[in-house]
Design a protein around this nucleic acid. Structure first.
Lengths: 225, 225
DNA sequence: CCAAAAGTGTTTGCTCTACACCCATGG
DNA sequence: CCATGGGTGTAGAGCAAACACTTTTGG
């Protein structure tokens, strides 16, 4: 029964987010081969028969961009019969969140002519239906920012409250009230102060770290902002 | 490039919800063939190369259960290499919502020994990883009930406010305050009164209908209850 | 007139928002 | 001592929750 059907190809595509130069950005690769040669596309590739979808996404991501062990979450599966000129390809999309130091380490791999971080408001023309995938991923990322604590995946291990607020302002693209923001985030008990402060210009700032176990996806309330 | 890879099979599985005998219920089919012969499973089947994923879900659903044109939404894609003993099968899951009158019309099709509505709190043992799929679908359905207006897909075209409240109480499995519920649902302006009332025992009840265009997925607030 | 279900407002507490000044450090 | 960013509290408005009786119909 299983043998008689012609089968589609299945791939994964990953929308990798990070904050680069104070802008929400996506890691794209320049395609080295047809179709869409020379255009920009999401990292991703075909799923091997002995690996899970998430494993495939991680493998392709590492092969093509050097990004290891990101926070990864499945988004949506795109299966329009015409979405790939080579034939029937169904793709399972994921989003990945990586911290700024991880973002700096990313580097082009074998299948990619080059990789580059692109500001989400200045995207180039994209291969396949990757524009749609990105649009959906951005919507979902913003939603998750307001209702969960995934945002901390975009920060380094230690950060100040100002860092967190800046991140939220960049991702949500709106200004937030400092006092209200701090009250909210502290009362959610999802971060804890470290014993250190960051010194720089002005008054030193208390450093905090994310409490992994406090996965506070509180029912029905916006957590932030 | 596309030709050299061995390909997985791709199927769709649909979690069909309706309210049957005042209980949130799922339509299952009894498997006529191995594997898992005689066990219960979600309706679904393999995707043809020339149809979209959603088309495949609709086609299989109609073939196996007679359910036509339900509200359908993609949920999650399951791709564990071992999830199907016949080989590598990746399945894209959907949930479907159908009104009580549509539910009454469902009927076994060619590939199913029989079909039956099952109370979600009294599910039989299920084939494959369908138990996991259902668990996730129920979580998502409840979430959507609170944040969107999908609930009306489970009601007939005309309904009373008491009907709506009962539906929400059944799906969310909690009692709701009558006055608060009515105020909320009316102030959301997503339903409008018809010119008729339903007569029965007690005082006749105003009938309402859903306003299709009022897709009020209001940012960040619980719509209901 | 009785049973059954429909329909209707108000008060109270809480949460969200708006808003401005002092503090600690380095140069 | 000045520039820079860090840190803090309160008052008012709007929203959500709790709560009980009256109305309309059929039998």
């Amino acid at each position: 029964m299983l043998d008689n059907y012609p089968r589609p190809s299945v791939s994964t595509d990953v929308v990798v987010f990070s904050v680069v130069n104070d802008r929400l950005s996506i890691l794209l690769i320049e395609r080295r081969h047809p179709p869409y040669q020379g255009m920009w596309a999401l990292p991703g590739g075909f799923v091997n028969l002995d690996e899970s979808l998430e494993d495939a996404a991680r493998r392709e991501l590492e092969e093509e961009t050097g990004v290891k062990n990101p926070f990864l979450e499945q988004l949506y599966t795109y299966g329009d019969p015409d979405r790939d000129p080579r034939g029937r390809v169904i793709t399972v999309s994921y989003f990945a969140l990586i911290s700024p130091d991880m973002a700096a380490k990313s580097t082009a791999g074998s299948d990619a002519a080059s990789i580059k971080w692109h500001d989400i408001d200045q995207l180039p023309e994209l291969a396949f239906d990757h524009k749609d995938i990105i649009t959906y991923a951005v919507t979902r990322l913003r939603y998750k920012f307001e209702h969960s604590t995934v945002g901390f995946e975009l920060l380094p291990d230690e950060f100040t409250l100002t860092d967190v607020q800046k991140l939220y302002e960049i991702v949500l693209d709106e200004e937030l009230d400092k006092r209200n923001f701090r009250r909210r985030i502290l009362s959610a008990k999802i971060i804890e102060p470290t014993l250190e402060k960051r010194i720089g210009e002005g008054r030193p700032a208390q450093l905090y770290r994310y409490r992994q176990n406090a996965s506070a996806e509180i029912k029905s309330k916006r957590l932030f902002p």
